[in-house]
């Protein structure tokens, strides 16, 4: 069983994507390197566009990774590094779109749609209740008499 689990984990690990970060780019300080990886994962490769610079083999992505590491080593905070890259390439370089006026609809749109749907659903079911209510109205005198007649017939 243990062997099986080991094999299973090994299979999972072996399916991890290959790393684009070259060994000679990696910083010696593991804390700084971890920050660099973190920043790189959020920055779009401008050549391939749907990969992060952390994943991309493009030469521009490599140069950007090196730049990120240089800035971190020079003492920049994560935010300062990201702000610098955005000042050169615009918000598009961020894989996760920031929350600002241009992306308001993008961030709040789904929430509004869900709210709208909920309201519509509530209204719809409330109204249906009203529609079904008259159907269970009390029987009229004539109907009651007819029911009594039928029951009497049955009892005979």
């Amino acid at each position: 069983m243990r062997l099986f689990i080991c094999l299973f984990m090994w299979t999972l690990l072996s399916t991890l994507p290959a790393n684009a970060v070259n060994p000679n780019e990696i910083l010696t300080d593991p804390a700084l390197e971890a920050r660099a990886r973190d920043i790189s994962k959020g920055l779009r490769c401008l050549v391939c566009q749907n990969q992060s610079i952390d994943d991309s083999d493009a030469s521009l992505a490599k140069d950007l990774r090196v730049l990120v590491r240089e800035r971190i080593t020079a003492g920049d905070s994560n935010d300062q590094v990201v702000t610098y890259v955005v000042s050169r390439y615009g918000d598009f370089v961020l894989l996760k779109p920031p929350f600002n006026m241009a992306t308001l609809v993008l961030w709040l749109g789904p929430l509004l749609l869900i709210l709208g749907g909920l309201i519509a659903a509530i209204l719809f079911f409330r109204k249906n209740k009203k529609i079904t209510a008259p159907a269970s109205a009390p029987l009229t005198e004539a109907e009651k008499m007819r029911v009594a007649e039928l029951l009497a017939e049955d009892n005979q």
Binding site: L46, L60, D63, R88, G90
Partner: peptide
């Protein structure tokens, strides 16, 4: 050679 100026200009290609 290392895109120093290119990146500061926001060059993509």
């Amino acid at each position: 050679p290392k895109s120093k100026a290119a990146i500061s200009f926001g060059v993509t290609g």
